[in-house]
Design a protein around this nucleic acid. Structure first.
Length: 875
RNA sequence: GGGGGCAUAGCUCAGCUGGUUAGAGCGCAUGCUUCACAUGCAUGAGGUCACAGGUUCGAGCCCUGUUGUCCCCACCA
């Protein structure tokens, strides 16, 4: 079958993917004779569709897993999707409002969950389709959803374990409350940003002395209804006499004490702090120290409750305004200062969160964090790039207890029941039917669900069957590398590490490869609100998946952000087009020829040169892939394929291919096929589709490239010396081209080359390609050029080249050019001389370097002599 | 307040453990209807490697400081 003239990915990408699936190449089998290599995919949220970040994430993983598979590992890439409790619930709530005009409460828990499962079916399916479009070679037989039965069992097991160890506890503590999502959030789920606001100075009068008062400065006047004290610093001379006295809280006229507490900073504000334990984390701590009552004044939707008296039911911000007005009217408002402070926002709906005291479930972090820190410290887990280890330590060392309960419906239900008769709390692996204490069957399960990250934390082993000791778990765990964005280091990676160590007693992965964010052309984050997101599917539709993959990994380094630009996709498309056409050229020329093994061919210097380049490329690509330097690996291949193979080697073979010597033709074709086949294998992990399509057209290939063996470096084929010598021929070709251009000689005009050289034999062996690529008629080896008339000349490593160009030669210009060259060489000599006359350099620098420098010096001296001779010839 | 990234060609970025004349893509200039490819080929112009010190035989790379810029964490009554 002949290859199409132009590269058109639409013709084959889908077909090839279907074929791979059908052949079962993605499926990983347990094979005792192979070493396992495992990646579990960070499960995309089922909230919508994949964006460019996902596309990069999956390209990196696919590249790694394909490489390992070709390298002979039992390579498992396990795909999945995440139920994303809060994120999905927010979406479904919006959706039912829009489509059915109802709230989730109106629908009821059961109906709402039905809708959400339907949502899941739709979106999880769509996400998988997108992953397939990208060419992802993941094992679809093992596709997992975080609320699958096996994951639910893992969640239950983990929760019960932690509960009985006392590492999960329920408590009334201050948490972040999202009034829009109406749920508690963990610290990690809150994003802070600076907001311009004000400092309201409020005067609270002393109960016994109407002339005495304290002025508190607050950014939250509406919370004053929850004030249960005013704190001053014990050392503050201004207020020492007030400590222990009572103040009258304005509007509500409640009495509150003045307490002495270090929390009050004498330098800040007025030095007096109103203490609202129910609505501020620091105040909560102060409250604990002084045994203050906790008065909650807000409802779960962010409106004021009865504690706010007549403002009950009013929104918190409306109330703020009203309270300030009333205080002003009452004469308690001293002044308003502009003030900027940071305000926490819900990471899902971006509304301002409310610190609030609430009864929630928490994971005790300190005992879990310690071994997790050690695992990275002792290098059992390697974080790439290394600098992110610091971020990890910093977070782990200061982490507070993890609030895991969410007041949502979509998620893993908290496995705790309370006996309605005796109040006993039950937390077991199996759902209890009667109370073990009193035998009652009136058991109520906790209404809340778990933080979505609680189940994600178990992902590396829950997907493999934990808590059962399955063969998969035994063989594929611990996984080898986790590939994900640095933005979820805290949410996910850190929690997988301590969860793996706690529950599985093993690290979850050996390496963590972090990548950065995909930004837009201007370097901005891609986001819905900016509308600057680019849909990977649109790009695939226009350019094909391989081009998109190219654009997403070209130039990326671990942990670094990257920009998506259509120009990069085009560069990818052009590169692939180049591969396509080079392959077409090779395949066209194969027809009617004998493709022989390298051993049976007399290799030309050019052949040895390209084979040598190929070997170097194999070495570098392998090395960089093993270091997860995917971008570097690809760029090595790009250069090899384009510059060495296409621009040089293919051109070099043409003199043989269009000649008459059959043996030479067979030789050239054989080397072309050999190099191309290897190059395609090297390229396959990056550009799976196009390489498969071409591989199929190559002679002597069988089966799929994706299960072919990845090329291994072969030192016997490195031909270092020969390759270096051949560079001299390249230099001559380039010199002739440059000289022609300089004097305005048309590149197509054939010239005669006169060489003064000691390398006649070697040059002669390469004469045919030299003539063809330099655009020359003949090569003549001479001792003296005085008879040639006007010439231009160029000094090369292998020879001095003289080209008689008659009237085209401007003697003055030529002389000036040579003088310029001489000048450059003289300065090189001075540089080398400087180094060589430096005793310290001679003594301390490595011998090889000194030798090289000396050789260089000699070479330049020789060049200088030759150019001086040429200049003399002008006279 | 703590931590980190970045600063190299007009633009976007590479530059490994310090070692020839610092690279690529895009852009630019000039010339090519050469039989795989104009999604191409050839030739070329373009850099005080942010600034100031230091270490070293040798610094784009290591150290200290400065400036600019971006990010993360904590605090912010």
């Amino acid at each position: 079958m002949e290859m199409q003239k132009t590269y058109n990915p639409k013709d084959f990408e889908d077909r090839i993917y279907a074929d791979w699936c059908e052949k079962g190449y993605f499926h990983a089998e347990i094979d005792p004779n192979k070493v396992p290599f495992t990646i579990v995919m960070p499960p995309p949220n089922i909230t919508g569709q994949l964006h460019m970040g996902h596309a990069m994430d999956c390209t990196l993983q696919d590249t790694i897993i394909r490489f390992k598979r070709m390298r002979g590992y039992a390579a498992l890439w396990l795909p999945g999707t995440d139920h994303a409790a809060i994120a999905t619930e927010v979406k479904v709530v919006d959706s039912i409002k829009e489509t059915e005009g109802v709230t989730k409460e109106q629908l009821g828990r059961e109906e709402f969950l039905k809708r959400t499962w339907a949502w899941k079916e739709k979106y999880a399916g769509r996400i998988c389709e997108q992953l397939k479009k990208m060419g992802s070679s993941c094992d679809w037989d093992r596709l997992t959803f975080t609320m699958d039965e096996k994951c639910s069992r893992a969640v239950r097991e983990a929760f019960v374990n932690l509960y009985h160890k006392g590492l999960i506890y329920q408590g009334n503590r201050i948490i972040n409350w999202c009034p829009h999502c109406k749920t508690a959030l963990s610290d990690a789920e809150v994003e802070y940003s600076d907001e311009a606001s004000a400092f309201w100075h409020l005067r609270y009068f002393a109960k016994d002395d109407p002339n005495r008062s304290l002025v508190v400065a607050t950014t939250r006047p509406e919370t004053m209804f929850g004030d249960t004290a005013v704190a001053v610093n014990p050392e503050d001379p201004r207020y020492k006499d007030m400590i222990g006295k009572m103040l009258i809280l304005p509007i509500v006229n409640r009495e509150i004490p003045v307490v002495a507490d270090e929390h009050a900073d004498m330098e800040f504000g007025t030095g007096c702090v109103k203490i609202t334990p129910a609505h501020d984390p620091n105040d909560f701590e102060v409250g604990l120290r002084h045994n203050l009552p906790v008065v909650c004044v807000m409802n779960e939707d962010g409106t004021m409750n009865d504690g706010a008296g007549k403002y009950s039911g009013m929104d918190r911000y409306a109330c703020r305004k009203a309270v300030v007005e009333e205080l002003e009217a009452l004469g308690n408002l001293v002044k308003i200062e502009p003030h900027t402070h940071s305000v926490g926002h819900c990471y899902r709906c971006h509304n301002a969160v409310e610190p609030m005291v609430s009864k929630q479930w928490f994971v005790k972090m300190e005992p879990l964090a310690k071994p997790a820190i050690q695992a990275v410290m002792k290098n059992r887990i390697k974080i790439i790039p290394d600098r992110l280890s610091k971020t990890y330590y910093n977070w782990m060392e200061n982490v507070r207890d993890w609030c895991i309960s969410r007041q949502l419906w979509w998620g893993h239900r908290i496995p705790v029941w309370t006996c309605s008769d005796c109040g006993k709390q039950i937390c077991e692996k199996k759902d209890p039917s009667i109370c073990p204490a009193c035998g009652s069957s009136r058991l109520e399960q906790d209404e809340d669900v778990l933080d979505t990250w609680f189940s994600s934390a178990l992902w590396p082993f829950s997907t493999l069957g934990w808590p059962d000791e399955t063969p998969d778990l035994d063989y594929f765990y611990p996984t080898d590398v986790l590939v994900t964005g640095y933005d979820i280091l805290f949410f996910w990676v850190a929690r997988m590490i301590f969860s793996g160590l706690e529950h599985k007693k093993q690290i979850p992965f050996r390496d963590v490869l972090f990548h950065g964010l995909v930004r837009d052309e201007q370097g901005r984050k891609m986001s819905k609100s900016l509308g600057n997101g680019v849909d990977p599917l649109t790009v695939i539709d226009k350019y094909g998946a391989d081009s998109l993959r190219f654009s997403l990994i070209t130039g990326v380094a671990p942990g670094n952000d990257t920009r998506y630009t259509e120009a990069k996709v085009e560069a990818g498309r052009n590169f692939i087009n180049k591969i396509w056409n080079a392959s077409r050229f090779v395949i066209m020329n194969v027809e009617g020829r004998n493709v022989l093994p390298l051993k049976q061919i007399k290799l030309t210097p050019a052949d040895k040169w390209i084979v040598s380049k190929l070997e170097t490329c194999i070495k570098e690509v392998t090395l960089n892939l093993n270091k997860y330097e995917i971008g570097v690996a690809l760029s090595k291949l790009y250069d090899f394929m384009w510059d060495d193979f296409c621009d040089w080697y293919i051109e070099l073979t043409k003199s043989a291919l269009y000649g008459t010597d059959e043996a030479k033709k067979d030789g050239a074709v054989s080397v072309l096929v050999f190099v191309l086949e290897n190059a395609l294998k090297l390229l396959h992990p990056f550009l799976p589709f196009v390489t498969e399509e071409i591989f199929d057209h190559l002679p002597n290939t069988e089966g799929s490239i994706m299960v072919a063996e990845f090329p291994r470096y072969n030192a016997k084929l490195a031909y270092k010396k020969e390759a270096k010598a051949f560079e001299g021929i390249k230099e001559m070709i380039q010199s002739v081209r440059a000289v022609k251009k300089e004097v305005g000689c048309a590149p197509s005009k054939r010239v005669d080359l006169y060489l003064i050289t000691e390398n006649k034999r070697f040059i002669h062996a390469n004469e045919a390609p030299l003539l063809k690529l330099a655009g020359a008629n003949s090569v003549k080896y001479v001792e003296d050029v005085s008879a040639l008339g006007k010439t231009v000349s160029k000094l090369c490593e292998l020879a001095q080249i003289y080209i008689p160009l008659g009237e085209l030669v401007d003697l003055e210009k030529e002389k000036a050019r040579l003088e310029g060259e001489l000048e450059r060489i003289i300065s090189e000599i001075a540089r080398a001389d400087g180094k060589l006359s430096n005793q310290n350099f001679l003594l301390k620098a490595p011998k090889k370097l000194v030798e090289d420098e000396r050789a260089k010096y000699e070479k330049y001296l020789d060049m200088k002599k030759k150019i001086e001779q040429q200049l003399k010839d002008f006279e």
